[in-house]
Design a binder for these strands. Sequence first.
DNA 1: ATTTCAATTGACGACGTCGACATTGCTGCC
DNA 2: GGCAGCAATGTCGACGTCGTCAATTGAAAT
Lengths: 352, 352
Amino acid sequence: MVSIKDVARVAGVSDKTVSRVVNGEPNVTADTIEKVQLAIADLGYIPNLAARSIRSNRTNIIGIITDFISTTPYSGDIVRGVQDWAGANGRTVLLANTDGDPTREANVWRTFKAHRIDGVLYVAMYHRVVVPAAGEVSIPTVLVNSHPEDGYVYPSIEPDDFGGSYALTEHLIALGHRRIGYIRLNPLLLGANQRLDAFLAAAQAAGIAESDLVIRLGMEGPVGRETNYVYRETLDILSMPDRPTALVCGNDEMALQAYLAALSLGLRVPDDITIVGFDDFRTVSLGLKPELTTVALPYYDLGWQGADMLDQLVHGKGSETERRVLKCPVVARRSSAQAREMQIADAAGTGG
Amino acid sequence: MVSIKDVARVAGVSDKTVSRVVNGEPNVTADTIEKVQLAIADLGYIPNLAARSIRSNRTNIIGIITDFISTTPYSGDIVRGVQDWAGANGRTVLLANTDGDPTREANVWRTFKAHRIDGVLYVAMYHRVVVPAAGEVSIPTVLVNSHPEDGYVYPSIEPDDFGGSYALTEHLIALGHRRIGYIRLNPLLLGANQRLDAFLAAAQAAGIAESDLVIRLGMEGPVGRETNYVYRETLDILSMPDRPTALVCGNDEMALQAYLAALSLGLRVPDDITIVGFDDFRTVSLGLKPELTTVALPYYDLGWQGADMLDQLVHGKGSETERRVLKCPVVARRSSAQAREMQIADAAGTGG
DNA sequence: ATTTCAATTGACGACGTCGACATTGCTGCC
DNA sequence: GGCAGCAATGTCGACGTCGTCAATTGAAAT
């Protein structure tokens, strides 16, 4: 590999002068700069960052530790957000996946430390509570899509599942729905409770009686290998004599099953039943016809802003206890169409 | 950061001896080893890989360059395959995404070279022809899920779209289907033609007349922002007087739309219509009821084996012209159930 | 002409690691 | 006892870069 000294020789200057040019330091003649740049281009010289990092004790590398990439495809957007931030800020990204295995996680931390990376983004692929196995020697770390268990202190950035679910429920209520079904996520997921709690809170705030809500468990069991009741439960809910006019699903994949169940009963979305999801997993939410009303998880921004928080931390400017929460906006699509509102209003008018 | 010299001082030996212990070199007393390891544990010493790489000219880092992560979620499995290989072989993974932007790609190559990584996996997120912008200074590179344009030479590893599609078609034919519909992928995708060609070849080999095949275009336009005709075309195909008994979709997301269209017509899968997909995008293929018969793309193995090929190359053992093709197995599920075969046989018996 | 000062450039060493080679000490053998 | 031979350990320098400080140059000020 061509080094700074080769360039120096060709340009007829000292290696230090080349270094100056490369790093844009002041006090170099325009003439010298040109000679050096010519030599650099000629030889195809590219600075050796490893060598640089030995001297400076800074690598400009940030590490990402992920757990279960495979089970939740779209959360890869978190990684994309981090990458884009890194690209825009001259950092490079080391990536490692643990598959949830503590042994592998320990190795990953070790490797990252060996690379002397500046910081770590500890990324959970579904929203949950975590305990990073960082060990004694610590690296600045930010938890993404997760927060630390009680007793551990890390800055974190998370989606506002509660707020998103609350807004979604309000959206349905505003459309006139009063009898609403709800199919719960796997209770192991942090989002499961937050979303259900917000649903109940919003319904109560609107004066809807508990008896008008039908709440069922959609999934249970270990994450990634759960037992799925959604189809069956949807059939059941939609076969009730006074069936709900709207059905809220814990996430978009569950909404997919709900669609299939509804269609198989000959019901039409949204005319006969309004269905909404959560996550805005676009393969599903845009793949369904009509397209699915859902709540977008700010994965990309979790990544981007998480990287930014980490950067603050690395430069000693961030707070160890910051807990940032990102809004989850309702994405209204045709599965909860406005027409619905009219129709219900009509029925009410006729009936009353 | 604690260095090898700190350990040496604490252990009362020379730095070189510590180096020997760390690297498991022979000719060190058990006694000395223990002393050193104690000191290492005490100080929490972790070797500095940057320093090591300056001397050895090997970093044990491989780089991944991806293009459009966002559009095709599950191909992230390629990355997971690479990571697992890396973890199992003591390598680390640098990740960069170009979003298909040549300027960003050029920067990525530059950065990778600056890190003196051992090699690059150039990963396309959908199967296609590529031209890596590696520049003059070259790094060992393997193309994954893609192959080089004519005139460029890179080893590559790809899925066998043709073989998978051929086997899938044979599967349908074996079940007794003779009238088959086909909804094409976006023609911009390399897989589109390979899959269609295989479909036609298998049909012809089975003596099925072209007039018994209904072929429609399902999508067109720039990848990621295509116009989608699948729902409409499916409605159209299934409304034909002598409608096909089976419908092959270019991928699983298209199969999802086909399901919805079929259900909305009151048709049942697979009793009234057999539907199959491609990709085994599990959110869809397992999310659909009945679960979808499809062809699995060996994403994970593309990553793992691609990394292995790259390793060969780095060690001067690989071939610059190797083009490895991985099988795509048919995954038979309930959407093309065996029952179907009986039924058709029955009908034929009654009718004939 | 001499001094002063700033701009420009270079020499050198240190970062952490390990390869090449030197040194030390011990064992076994004649 | 003396010496070869080997195991165990140490010294030193180089990898590529850049911080520190010294050296050189030239122009402005006296």
